[in-house]
């Protein structure tokens, strides 16, 4: 059973919505891309809350007076990080759900799926220029931490995908799965390229490009004062007069993003906030299956 946006909107909280979506796709199609376990040391990583304490490298602590956690190759079946853009523009909604609602729901559902099959799921929330990381773990108790974090996320600040990319490059081990959920409305023209560069570090990168239907169709009629959600900009226009030009610009932007993703071998999916999210996930998992 596929859930539409209105139905999901009636479910309060990310947990319920994510669970509902997850159950919609619980056919369990997902399989871990990596088999077995390994104890081969791979690298050190600075300790972050949620890391296994047993992997703390006490020798390193003795040398550097900092906590480092040992990382091992194939430590988990899959290590996935949901990068959720919680900038102010993600709070825009013309229908039942905002882009951030959709992003957190999708992220929650994916976390469910991953944890359910013993894969490690983590979060990287970007809001107001600050990062909130939840390192990937596969324990069942970790799922609550992930969902709580998503639950309490509010849209604020400007989009800064560039620094998100840099942050992830720093904290993520190689061969991680990076799932970006963003509207990609970043004034920095270089930001997307830097996100896509994660692919070069042998990470599996997927992009859920979230757009509101109003952004796609520009359905405004009366003279409107458009206010920038992430800055001080404002402009008064007659929407009918610029509609054609706006759509041309925006569709050009979408096409350029899609082309850039294809070029970087990054999975790309344009998600409208009125799309059925279980359908979106099924589509995603289906593509994943084909890639493998």
């Amino acid at each position: 059973m596929l859930l539409d946006a209105q139905t999901l909107a009636r479910l309060q909280g990310v947990k319920l919505r994510a669970r509902a979506v997850m159950e919609g796709v619980l056919s369990g199609l997902h399989k871990s891309p990596h088999q077995g376990q390994s104890v081969e040391f791979a690298e050190h990583k600075e300790y972050a809350p949620g890391d296994e304490l047993r992997h703390l490298d006490w020798k390193a602590y003795g040398k550097f007076d900092k906590y480092y956690v040992k990382r091992f190759e194939h430590e988990t079946n899959l290590r996935a990080v949901m990068v959720v853009d919680a900038s102010a523009s993600m709070g825009y909604r013309s229908g039942a759900l905002s882009k951030l609602d959709v992003a957190t729901t999708l992220a929650g559902a994916l976390c469910y799926l991953l944890v359910r099959q013993q894969d490690a799921a983590g979060l990287a929330l970007m809001a107001g220029g600050k990062w909130k990381d939840v390192p990937p773990r596969a324990s069942a108790g970790h799922l609550n931490v992930l969902l709580d974090t998503l639950e309490h996320t509010t849209p604020t600040g400007a989009t800064d995908l560039g620094s998100a990319a840099d942050h992830l490059a720093e904290v993520l081990p190689r061969r991680s799965s990076v799932i970006v959920l963003s509207d990609l409305l970043d004034e920095n023209q270089d930001a997307l390229r830097r996100i896509l560069a994660l692919r070069q570090r042998k990470n599996d990168v997927s992009v859920f490009h979230l757009v509101d239907p109003a952004e796609l169709t520009f359905p405004f009629d009366d003279p409107t004062l458009f206010i920038d959600m992430e800055g001080q900009g404002r402009v008064e226009v007659n929407p009918r007069e610029i509609k054609e030009s706006y759509l041309e610009e925006f569709n050009g932007f979408l096409a350029s993003v899609k082309a850039a993703c294809a070029e970087a071998d990054v999975d790309y999916d344009l998600v409208r906030t009125d799309d059925k999210l279980d359908d979106v996930l099924l589509r995603y998992l289906s593509r994943r299956g084909r890639r493998r």
């Binding site: 952004e215 206010i227 800055g231 900009g233 925006f250």
Partner: peptide
């Protein structure tokens, strides 16, 4: 003197670029 309806909008940059492009024609 009708006041235009304020509307927070994410892709404002596209609106502004469109207005700039069409200003002389408009």
């Amino acid at each position: 003197r009708r006041r235009p309806r304020p509307h927070p909008f994410g892709p404002l940059a596209f609106v502004m670029r469109s207005q700039k492009r069409t200003a002389s024609r408009l």
